[in-house]
Design a protein around this nucleic acid. Structure first.
Length: 427
RNA sequence: GUGGGUAUAGCUCAGUUGGUUAGAGCACCGGAUUGUGAUUCCGGGGGUCGGGGGUUCAAGUCCCCUUACCCACCCCA
């Protein structure tokens, strides 16, 4: 018989791991709402073209990482990132006319066809926010603050905010030309990869880790020198705003985001390195994306945080705590071995159902285990109450109700069980 | 996509230069006066050694292919 496995790079989140995931999700929802952001849930698939338009034709995501499927004439793609769908939803809902400033957030799965590695999966979860409708630098700072708060709420400290500005369209084009002009004479000396980068996205040459390329990059133009007065002022305002929030961003002209739509502010949040990567959050401003996707010309800023990297980091820093799945309140044990086990087995089902109806979560024994075995299982299971039903109790219309924490057991009439159980739990 | 490593019980791993019915710890199940949670002791179930092919009298062990995971690149959350 063939056995089946989850698709490559995709994994099950089992109940054992769920508390950790739910903690991240709860933190994301709570913080986003605290900052006035509203949840939005676009479809998990969009027209392929939406991504090629927004993310950019020559990005790795579009060139080789999209999960796409074709039905008839339409090509759909599982979202490789969240911004495109949110922006599309913003446009489609017509917010620009009725209520242009929207603070939106999402949390859910994304897909990219990449070679899996620790902290990098083909299906992964991101929490992201998008503030659409204003270019106010305070909103850039707000987004960064929100991201930092997320990590801090989870207990991560020593975070590093790296900040840069890409300028706006014109600035960026002039800068790119300058960098191209700078490397043109040295082109042959660049590493093989950078030769390719020179063609595809020359700014990435600045980011190369190859020592000889770094050597060649010394004296290269700095993007910040190319900013218009207005964009430089915006960048300065973002920094001032962050400092007034108590943040100490590091201006790093080397960070270059992989998606084409970014303008002006871009940032990454780094934590103590895990494996190959340390950036656990990336984001920035994208003032023209809404327009480029056919909407009104409104500016926006946002970020995305990956859950797997965050979880790995929490784990390695020992910040997971002792999270365990929550057990039901009560376990209804069945003492079989008498004359009418069938009646007993029906009885435990009914007892559990009565508890549930009263708001006490409960499960009943279905294993053919010894009573001692059941008691062991109950002890390990983390239940607070045990209800024990045997032949004798059934005949007398009572049950044994045991408070597992206090190790005290009392006999209660069936009719009083639910209220007695609630009393023990509530008290 | 490139380079390297790993794959033996549910989990963590032993397995000697190829040589009998493949082991341990933990976990699981049962028992130790027939209806009560710990510890201890005793016993038990469970693996076609990732999958496929090859070499050999003989393969968990050697060779090839394949799949998955891990690490480093690329890139990125």
């Amino acid at each position: 018989m063939k056995s089946y496995k989850a698709p490559r790079g995709m994994r099950d989140v089992l109940p054992e791991e769920m508390p950790a995931w739910q903690r991240l999700e709860a933190t994301a929802h709570r913080l986003a709402r605290l900052f006035g952001y509203s949840e939005v849930r676009p479809p998990l698939m969009e027209e392929t073209e939406l991504f090629t338009r927004s993310v950019g034709e020559v990005t790795d995501i579009v060139e080789k990482e999209m999960f796409s499927l074709k039905k008839g004439k339409t090509s759909l793609t599982l979202r490789p990132e969240g911004t495109a769908g949110v922006v599309r939803a913003y446009c489609q809902a017509g917010y620009a006319k009725r209520d242009p400033l929207q603070r939106l957030y999402y949390c859910g799965p994304m897909w990219r066809y990449e070679r899996p590695q620790r902290g990098r999966e083909r299906m992964f979860t991101q929490f992201g926010v998008e503030c659409i409708g204003s270019a106010d630098p305070r909103l850039d700072a707000e987004a960064i603050q929100l991201a930092c708060r997320f990590f801090e709420e989870l207990g991560l400290t020593g975070l590093e905010v790296r900040l840069n500005s890409m300028g706006d369209g014109d600035d960026r084009d002039r800068y790119r030309d300058a960098v191209r002009g700078f490397f043109e004479p040295k082109r042959a000396e660049l590493c093989e990869l950078c030769q390719d980068r020179f063609e595809r996205n020359v700014l990435r040459v600045l980011d190369c880790k190859n020592p000889s390329c770094q050597e060649l990059a010394i004296g290269a133009p700095v993007v910040l020198d190319f900013l218009s007065e207005e964009n430089a002022a915006h960048f300065a305002d973002v920094q001032v705003a962050l400092k007034s929030l108590g943040r100490e961003p590091i201006v790093d002209p080397g960070i270059v985001r992989g998606l084409d739509y970014y303008t002006k502010t871009i940032f990454e949040i780094h934590a103590p390195a895990i494996g190959a990567r340390s950036a656990i959050c990336g984001g920035g401003r994208y003032d023209h994306l809404v327009r480029d996707l056919g909407g009104p010309d409104v500016p926006a800023v946002g970020f995305a945080i990956g859950f797997s990297g965050t979880l790995i980091m929490l784990e390695e820093l020992g910040l997971m705590g002792d999270l365990k799945p929550v057990a039901p309140d009560a376990y209804v044990a069945c003492l079989t071995g008498g004359d009418d086990d069938a009646a007993l087995r029906r009885e435990v089902l009914c007892v559990a159902d009565e508890l549930r109806a009263a708001g006490v979560s409960a499960i009943f024994d279905v294993d053919e285990r010894s009573f001692k075995g059941q008691m062991k299982a109950i002890a390990k299971g983390g239940y607070r109450l045990a209800v024990i039903v045997g032949e004798d109790e059934l005949a007398r219309g009572v049950v044994q109700l045991k408070d597992l924490g206090a190790r005290e057991q009392t006999e209660v009439p069936r009719a009083d069980l639910a209220s007695a159980a609630k009393g023990l739990l509530g008290g």
